[in-house]
Design a protein around this nucleic acid. Structure first.
Length: 188
DNA sequence: AATAGGATTTCCT
DNA sequence: GGAAATCCTATTC
Protein backbone atom coordinates (compact mmCIF):
# COMPACT_ATOMS: atom_id res chain seq x y z
CA UNK A 1 0.00 0.00 0.00
CA UNK A 2 1.04 3.60 0.15
CA UNK A 3 2.04 3.46 3.80
CA UNK A 4 5.51 2.01 3.21
CA UNK A 5 6.43 3.60 -0.11
CA UNK A 6 8.94 5.85 1.63
CA UNK A 7 10.89 3.23 3.59
CA UNK A 8 14.56 3.26 2.64
CA UNK A 9 15.21 -0.07 0.95
CA UNK A 10 18.18 -2.34 0.38
CA UNK A 11 19.21 -0.54 -2.81
CA UNK A 12 19.44 2.75 -0.94
CA UNK A 13 22.04 1.33 1.44
CA UNK A 14 23.83 -0.74 -1.23
CA UNK A 15 25.95 2.22 -2.32
CA UNK A 16 29.07 4.11 -1.39
CA UNK A 17 29.09 5.05 2.31
CA UNK A 18 29.63 8.71 1.50
CA UNK A 19 26.49 8.87 -0.69
CA UNK A 20 24.37 7.08 1.86
CA UNK A 21 25.64 9.25 4.71
CA UNK A 22 24.77 12.40 2.80
CA UNK A 23 21.33 11.26 1.69
CA UNK A 24 20.34 10.03 5.14
CA UNK A 25 20.32 13.64 6.29
CA UNK A 26 16.73 14.84 6.71
CA UNK A 27 15.40 11.29 6.84
CA UNK A 28 13.32 10.00 9.72
CA UNK A 29 14.74 7.39 12.06
CA UNK A 30 11.97 5.27 13.57
CA UNK A 31 12.53 3.02 16.57
CA UNK A 32 9.52 1.65 18.44
CA UNK A 33 7.58 4.77 19.46
CA UNK A 34 10.49 7.11 18.85
CA UNK A 35 10.98 9.28 15.79
CA UNK A 36 13.75 11.71 14.95
CA UNK A 37 15.11 13.60 11.97
CA UNK A 38 18.67 12.64 11.11
CA UNK A 39 20.83 15.77 11.30
CA UNK A 40 24.42 14.47 11.38
CA UNK A 41 26.18 11.38 9.98
CA UNK A 42 29.63 10.03 9.22
CA UNK A 43 30.77 7.62 6.49
CA UNK A 44 33.04 4.66 7.24
CA UNK A 45 34.68 2.16 4.92
CA UNK A 46 36.96 -0.82 5.41
CA UNK A 47 40.24 -1.66 3.77
CA UNK A 48 41.27 1.94 2.98
CA UNK A 49 39.91 3.55 6.11
CA UNK A 50 42.21 3.22 9.11
CA UNK A 51 39.58 4.80 11.38
CA UNK A 52 37.06 2.07 10.58
CA UNK A 53 36.50 -0.95 12.77
CA UNK A 54 36.63 -3.02 9.59
CA UNK A 55 40.13 -1.82 8.66
CA UNK A 56 41.91 -4.81 10.18
CA UNK A 57 39.50 -7.44 8.93
CA UNK A 58 36.55 -9.24 10.37
CA UNK A 59 36.15 -9.79 14.10
CA UNK A 60 33.26 -10.95 16.25
CA UNK A 61 32.32 -7.33 16.92
CA UNK A 62 32.42 -5.91 13.39
CA UNK A 63 31.29 -8.85 11.28
CA UNK A 64 27.95 -7.18 10.56
CA UNK A 65 29.86 -4.51 8.60
CA UNK A 66 31.01 -7.22 6.20
CA UNK A 67 27.49 -8.49 5.57
CA UNK A 68 24.29 -7.31 3.91
CA UNK A 69 23.69 -3.53 3.65
CA UNK A 70 20.80 -1.94 5.53
CA UNK A 71 21.49 -3.66 8.84
CA UNK A 72 22.03 -2.05 12.21
CA UNK A 73 25.57 -2.16 13.58
CA UNK A 74 25.64 -1.27 17.27
CA UNK A 75 28.79 -1.42 19.34
CA UNK A 76 29.95 -0.30 22.75
CA UNK A 77 32.31 2.67 22.63
CA UNK A 78 34.86 3.28 25.38
CA UNK A 79 33.08 0.57 27.33
CA UNK A 80 30.28 3.03 28.06
CA UNK A 81 28.14 4.27 25.15
CA UNK A 82 26.43 2.38 22.36
CA UNK A 83 26.91 3.91 18.93
CA UNK A 84 24.38 3.38 16.12
CA UNK A 85 25.41 2.64 12.54
CA UNK A 86 23.70 1.28 9.43
CA UNK A 87 25.70 -0.91 7.06
CA UNK A 88 26.38 0.11 3.45
CA UNK A 89 28.08 -0.97 0.20
CA UNK A 90 27.75 -4.73 -0.40
CA UNK A 91 28.39 -8.12 1.11
CA UNK A 92 32.12 -8.60 1.53
CA UNK A 93 32.79 -4.87 1.05
CA UNK A 94 32.55 -3.44 4.57
CA UNK A 95 31.01 -0.03 5.15
CA UNK A 96 28.68 1.80 7.50
CA UNK A 97 27.19 5.16 8.33
CA UNK A 98 27.36 6.40 11.90
CA UNK A 99 24.29 8.31 13.06
CA UNK A 100 25.72 11.13 15.17
CA UNK A 101 22.70 13.34 15.87
CA UNK A 102 18.96 13.52 15.38
CA UNK A 103 16.25 16.05 16.11
CA UNK A 104 13.56 14.53 18.38
CA UNK A 105 10.11 14.36 16.78
CA UNK A 106 8.14 11.77 18.74
CA UNK A 107 8.66 10.19 22.15
CA UNK A 108 10.36 13.28 23.55
CA UNK A 109 9.09 12.69 27.06
CA UNK A 110 10.44 9.13 27.11
CA UNK A 111 13.77 10.42 25.81
CA UNK A 112 13.98 12.85 28.73
CA UNK A 113 13.40 10.00 31.15
CA UNK A 114 16.01 7.77 29.47
CA UNK A 115 18.59 10.56 29.51
CA UNK A 116 17.74 12.15 32.84
CA UNK A 117 17.86 15.54 31.10
CA UNK A 118 15.13 18.09 30.38
CA UNK A 119 16.84 20.22 27.74
CA UNK A 120 15.59 19.00 24.33
CA UNK A 121 18.71 20.26 22.55
CA UNK A 122 20.79 17.98 24.77
CA UNK A 123 18.75 14.82 24.33
CA UNK A 124 20.06 13.40 21.06
CA UNK A 125 22.90 15.63 19.84
CA UNK A 126 25.73 13.11 19.92
CA UNK A 127 26.16 9.46 18.97
CA UNK A 128 26.25 8.22 22.55
CA UNK A 129 23.44 10.50 23.68
CA UNK A 130 20.95 9.48 21.04
CA UNK A 131 21.29 5.75 21.66
CA UNK A 132 20.67 6.31 25.35
CA UNK A 133 17.67 8.54 24.59
CA UNK A 134 16.13 5.93 22.27
CA UNK A 135 17.11 2.90 24.34
CA UNK A 136 19.30 1.43 21.60
CA UNK A 137 21.69 -1.25 22.79
CA UNK A 138 23.41 -4.42 21.56
CA UNK A 139 20.10 -6.22 21.15
CA UNK A 140 19.53 -4.14 18.04
CA UNK A 141 22.75 -5.28 16.39
CA UNK A 142 21.85 -7.00 13.12
CA UNK A 143 18.35 -5.52 12.92
CA UNK A 144 17.28 -5.10 9.28
CA UNK A 145 16.05 -1.53 8.79
CA UNK A 146 14.61 -2.25 5.33
CA UNK A 147 11.80 -4.47 6.64
CA UNK A 148 8.59 -2.56 7.22
CA UNK A 149 7.81 -4.34 10.49
CA UNK A 150 11.35 -4.01 11.78
CA UNK A 151 12.05 -2.58 15.24
CA UNK A 152 14.09 0.13 13.56
CA UNK A 153 13.73 1.70 10.11
CA UNK A 154 14.41 4.82 8.09
CA UNK A 155 11.79 6.85 6.21
CA UNK A 156 12.62 9.16 3.34
CA UNK A 157 12.47 12.71 4.62
CA UNK A 158 12.65 14.90 1.53
CA UNK A 159 15.48 17.10 0.33
CA UNK A 160 17.24 19.02 3.08
CA UNK A 161 17.81 22.71 2.45
CA UNK A 162 21.54 22.70 3.05
CA UNK A 163 24.26 20.16 3.77
CA UNK A 164 27.72 20.86 5.20
CA UNK A 165 30.80 18.64 5.33
CA UNK A 166 33.69 18.37 7.73
CA UNK A 167 36.29 15.99 9.07
CA UNK A 168 35.03 13.10 11.17
CA UNK A 169 35.01 13.55 14.93
CA UNK A 170 37.35 11.71 17.27
CA UNK A 171 39.39 10.01 14.57
CA UNK A 172 42.46 10.86 12.56
CA UNK A 173 41.14 11.58 9.10
CA UNK A 174 41.90 14.02 6.32
CA UNK A 175 38.83 13.33 4.25
CA UNK A 176 35.57 15.17 4.89
CA UNK A 177 33.29 12.27 5.69
CA UNK A 178 31.10 13.96 8.26
CA UNK A 179 27.83 15.43 6.99
CA UNK A 180 25.34 17.64 8.80
CA UNK A 181 22.36 19.87 8.12
CA UNK A 182 23.68 23.43 7.76
CA UNK A 183 20.69 25.09 9.35
CA UNK A 184 20.04 22.70 12.22
CA UNK A 185 20.76 23.32 15.87
CA UNK A 186 20.66 19.59 16.46
CA UNK A 187 24.29 18.75 15.70
CA UNK A 188 27.04 17.69 18.07
C1' DA B 1 35.89 29.09 30.14
C1' DA B 2 39.02 25.56 29.69
C1' DT B 3 41.08 21.35 30.85
C1' DA B 4 41.72 16.91 32.86
C1' DG B 5 40.19 12.48 34.34
C1' DG B 6 36.97 8.52 34.82
C1' DA B 7 33.85 4.71 33.26
C1' DT B 8 35.10 0.06 31.15
C1' DT B 9 34.60 -3.36 26.33
C1' DT B 10 36.98 -4.83 22.43
C1' DC B 11 40.80 -5.24 19.76
C1' DC B 12 45.74 -4.56 18.43
C1' DT B 13 50.79 -4.52 19.55
C1' DG C 1 49.35 -2.78 28.05
C1' DG C 2 47.09 0.87 25.76
C1' DA C 3 44.03 3.16 22.66
C1' DA C 4 39.41 3.78 20.95
C1' DA C 5 33.79 6.42 15.93
C1' DT C 6 32.04 9.49 23.92
C1' DC C 7 30.09 12.04 27.50
C1' DC C 8 29.90 13.73 32.23
C1' DT C 9 31.88 15.79 36.36
C1' DA C 10 35.23 18.15 39.03
C1' DT C 11 38.85 21.33 39.34
C1' DT C 12 41.25 25.31 38.17
C1' DC C 13 41.97 29.75 35.85
Amino acid sequence: MSDNIDIRDRDFFSRDSEEVAQELLGDILVKDGFKGRITETEAYYGENDSASHAYNGKTERNEIMFGVPGKVYVYLCYGVYYLLNITTRSKGRPGAVLIRSIKPLEGVNEMKINRGVEEVLELTTGPGKLTKALGVDKRYNGCDVTQKNSKMKVLEGGDPSGVSKGPRVGVDSERKLRFFLSNSDYVS
